[in-house]
Amino acid sequence: MHRRLDYRTVTLREDGRAIRIIDQTRLPQQVVFCDLETQEQIRHAIYTLQVRGAPAIGVTAAYGLALAAGEIDARDRDGFMGQLADKKAYLAAARPTAVNLFWALDEMETFAAGLRYRDPKQMAADMLQRAREVEAQDVRVCRRIGENGLALLQDGWGILTHCNAGQLAAVLYGTALAPVYAGAERGYTFHMYCDETRPLLQGARLTAFEMRAAGIDTTLLCDNMAATAMARGDIQAVLVGADRIAANGDTANKIGTLGVAILAQHYGIPFYVCAPLSTFDPCCESGADITIEQRPGTEISEMWYKQPMAPAGVKLYNPAFDVTPAALITGIVSEYGVARAPYTHSIPALFAARKRQPV
């Protein structure tokens, strides 16, 4: 599969003592690697979006808890598990919406709980190996999402994406952009349209950067230009990622995704969500149950400007995500195939497929 970077967005440093990430707050001007050695650094990196994207957050959390386990000073297994629960809670508080954060932490805690008759040091070592497996699994999963998503596209199409769900949101391939990379490998000539994606401009800073570096024809749009591009006939499909998918198919993604979905329905354009099963939350009945992260208003009024662009004292509203109802989603592309309405039937089928043959 085609990809633009030979290095990984998230991985374990060679000495096994730190997480090495690409600091995404420095892009696109600089590609800077950052080593996260302490729990404070790991949590800060997740909160400030030095590392972001649901799969990348999950891998970071898995490594983070494994490294935290190595710091535990306990005499027995029960003491180890008690301290591990505290460290898990600390990392879980970094961001509330992306379910991969909680999935990875739960996965690591469950793994540790299943280690019987092990001393704490050995348990920590085994957890680190399990985190390596989480990283490797992300690569396999995203490759499969790319292949499944490509089957829905045609050569020459114009494709709109919102925010960043590419390599920088995962380890190597991404989710919503994985089909684009798969197509590029086969010689497809997609034209990518990237919403800039307020408030953190992750489409402008990250997606446009990825696509340009991969040699893929790319046009950057302000968020409020998507309707015009659709009306002109420039867009034949929309591909977006997800941070949490409810049991009924309602999907939380970066703020502005809902508006794109409404526009796509109006113009008869297929709207696909691309996400691994780790982003699905069967315990979340609908989008109404998804907690939406509220971020500092200064990200809108000051962050990207030499001087404030809004009048002093104006109220600021800055949700990081919105929820797209399942009725607006043409299909959800996972590593186990494409779920379609009714999602209350097709999503459980994906989980059943995972039980039969895990990726």
Results as ranks from 00 to 15, higher is better:
residue 148 N to D: 06
residue 195 D to W: 04
residue 144 R to Q: 15
residue 15 D to P: 07
residue 140 R to D: 15
residue 157 W to P: 00
residue 244 R to G: 02
residue 182 A to E: 15
residue 242 A to R: 05
residue 233 G to C: 03
residue 163 C to D: 05
residue 107 E to N: 15
residue 200 L to S: 02
residue 239 L to W: 00
residue 314 V to H: 12
residue 71 E to T: 15
residue 328 L to W: 11
residue 313 G to I: 08
residue 87 K to F: 11
residue 206 L to W: 02
residue 358 P to Q: 11
residue 24 Q to F: 04
residue 224 N to A: 12
residue 42 I to Q: 01
residue 358 P to W: 13
residue 29 Q to N: 13
residue 290 I to A: 07
residue 57 I to F: 08
residue 318 N to R: 02
residue 306 K to C: 13
residue 89 A to W: 08
residue 119 D to E: 08
residue 51 V to R: 01
residue 46 I to E: 00
residue 194 C to V: 06
residue 78 D to N: 14
residue 220 L to R: 08
residue 324 T to P: 05
residue 163 C to M: 00
residue 201 L to E: 06
residue 24 Q to P: 02
residue 184 A to M: 11
residue 89 A to C: 09
residue 299 E to C: 08
residue 47 Y to T: 11
residue 72 I to G: 07
residue 53 G to F: 09
residue 141 V to R: 07
residue 321 F to T: 01
residue 29 Q to G: 11
residue 79 G to Y: 10
residue 20 R to W: 04
residue 78 D to T: 14
residue 339 A to M: 09
residue 18 A to S: 11
residue 276 P to H: 04
residue 180 V to W: 02
residue 328 L to E: 02
residue 256 G to N: 06
residue 19 I to H: 08
residue 116 R to H: 15
residue 159 I to M: 02
residue 285 E to I: 11
residue 264 A to T: 00
residue 226 A to S: 06
residue 95 R to M: 01
residue 96 P to I: 05
residue 306 K to P: 05
residue 336 Y to V: 12
residue 253 N to D: 00
residue 220 L to D: 03
residue 286 S to G: 13
residue 193 Y to D: 00
residue 92 A to N: 14
residue 41 Q to C: 06
residue 52 R to S: 07
residue 11 T to Y: 12
residue 230 M to T: 03
residue 37 E to W: 12
residue 189 T to K: 12
residue 151 A to Y: 04
residue 97 T to W: 03
residue 258 L to W: 13
residue 51 V to Y: 09
residue 93 A to W: 10
residue 165 A to M: 03
residue 326 A to F: 13
residue 2 H to F: 15
residue 336 Y to F: 12
residue 56 A to T: 03
residue 350 L to S: 07
residue 137 Q to P: 13
residue 45 A to T: 09
residue 343 Y to L: 11
residue 139 V to W: 03
residue 59 V to D: 04
residue 27 L to W: 03
residue 225 M to Y: 02
residue 135 E to I: 12
residue 156 G to I: 04
